[in-house]
Design a protein around this nucleic acid. Sequence first.
DNA 1: CTGAAAGCGCTTACAG
DNA 2: CTGAAAGCGCTTACAG
Lengths: 337, 337
Amino acid sequence: MRIVTIRDVAKEAQVSISTVSRVLNDRPDVDALTRARVLKVVEKLQYVRNANAANLKQQHTDFSAVVLRGRRNLFLTDLAERILDIGRRRGRRFLIEIIDEKDDEFETARTLYRERKLSGCIFLGSNLQQHVHDFETLDLPCVFATVQAEFLAGRQFSSVAVNNFDTGKAAVDRLIGLGHRRIALLGFYGPVTNSTGQRLYGAQESLRRHGIPYDESLFEECDFTLPSAYAGMTAVLSRRRDFSALFAISDIVAFGAMKALIDHGLSVPRDVSVIGMDGTEQAAYTVPSLSTYAQPADDIATESVRLLEAAMRGQKGKHVLLPAPFIQGGSIKKHVE
Amino acid sequence: MRIVTIRDVAKEAQVSISTVSRVLNDRPDVDALTRARVLKVVEKLQYVRNANAANLKQQHTDFSAVVLRGRRNLFLTDLAERILDIGRRRGRRFLIEIIDEKDDEFETARTLYRERKLSGCIFLGSNLQQHVHDFETLDLPCVFATVQAEFLAGRQFSSVAVNNFDTGKAAVDRLIGLGHRRIALLGFYGPVTNSTGQRLYGAQESLRRHGIPYDESLFEECDFTLPSAYAGMTAVLSRRRDFSALFAISDIVAFGAMKALIDHGLSVPRDVSVIGMDGTEQAAYTVPSLSTYAQPADDIATESVRLLEAAMRGQKGKHVLLPAPFIQGGSIKKHVE
DNA sequence: CTGAAAGCGCTTACAG
DNA sequence: CTGAAAGCGCTTACAG
């Protein structure tokens, strides 16, 4: 079937293509009757505007991007989907770009910006470490989700996150409150600006405040995957069996760790209490269910889109901190010697 | 910073923009030295082609789409990510469109096609029921992944899937082989062309062949979410406690069901053997680990992209069936009266 | 092998 | 309120 262009609509409606364009773009300076006539023809001909042509001419395109760091991070991919979903309902289209842990989010954004004339970008799980200055040269509204980015000067930058440090601290405070003293830690530090590192620093801070020395042999590095978490927990178990609690920097890590604990003949929570973080749906379906601090995914997604749109309208960026509520599961209990 | 266009490159390299365009598009009819000179300027100026302009003029764009039906289906979203990843490595960009179960995948594809001048489309989990004829009017290479679509006439249609019917049958064959006779079924039928329905029909076929009457009170409908699977299992449990096995149409459903079984005081596999389907990574990390038939996600993703590219080059579509290997987990055992 | 010119389908000042 | 014209940044016949 032949493709219907704006010219066909103009001819059929007996107006100029300028007028059709005005109607299409909801310009106010069109006669109501003319508008109605054009709209009827659009309907009749089932005209769909060629976005490539529109984007070529327009200053801003209808494209925004979501740059997702780490394709294996379940929480982030879920977040990306939510953002896509919210975008769709608001008529905003997101290109999604999944990059490896080692890839460069700044380069990705810049290329996308040049190639597609992006009008905005949401970063999920980026660490920004080395790119503070680079970003400031990019003339593009950016939102950093799940990571606090107040340190980015520039009015087009926003961020939405929970306070990762405080949450890590709260998790370990809670375990200590239950009587635990030997607490294993699973995760990775990464750059200081990284959300996951902050969780661990918060955990350490809690230990310090309670006068518990940080014990390296109770920590093992792992990333956001089940096998890596399983291996990490196994490594700790090969060194120590005397810990009674575990704080994992994410639910996924906690899942892998719980499996390792059970495979090694330990029971959760009888032998080891476990707290995760993220508040994934799956946390309620493990056996036992996992106690976790929730990152409010829905709020983060909604707020990200809202902040992006605000910045695109020229409003000044904001840095939003959301609470991370505790969700009680069956994976923790009081420690008794 | 000013945006560098093809004109800037042409001027700097002292050639016409036609020549720059030829170099950019890897046309053979360019002098080697000229090509080298242009490429050096491209590098120097950090020129990035404006994709909107290129796509406007070209017959085919560099956009393909992935239309994902059902945003809560973990297996499909994982598949989508893999496709994005493979596409990226091959310089192909995918727009991703997540639609609801009740949305119309044909309309989605058609609008995308008109709006963006798509050059191809991969459908994940679509059922096609009412759209066989519509699709044949769409002049767009299409690949249907996870669903068998041989019935689609037209040379630009391909599909990649496991044999869902046979796999459902194999799962129940296996349970019966272990001595189980009262087998619960969890999932939903949907349209006949649907992959999940086929799994259940296969399961029924197995029962029939073994002379076991299909018992409706052992079936409950649920979708691909944990809460729904949990509720479904709970509903079955409210009616019957005498079954010794469960076939769930997907791992996610199995996870939700196992949790429900355990919450109701039953043990897996002591009281109930469970088999899922999909072969998700998580299946190996539940307690006990889940026996499942794997849909080879990596192969499906690779093959989907390969078939799409072949169709875009004008090759005739193919319908590929992949094997679904059994992965042994701890969730099944021999039934003893 | 290379360049000048037309045109892809829109939007946007500029006139009226 | 409306239209004619220029132009967005490319690609692609058409000449040479």
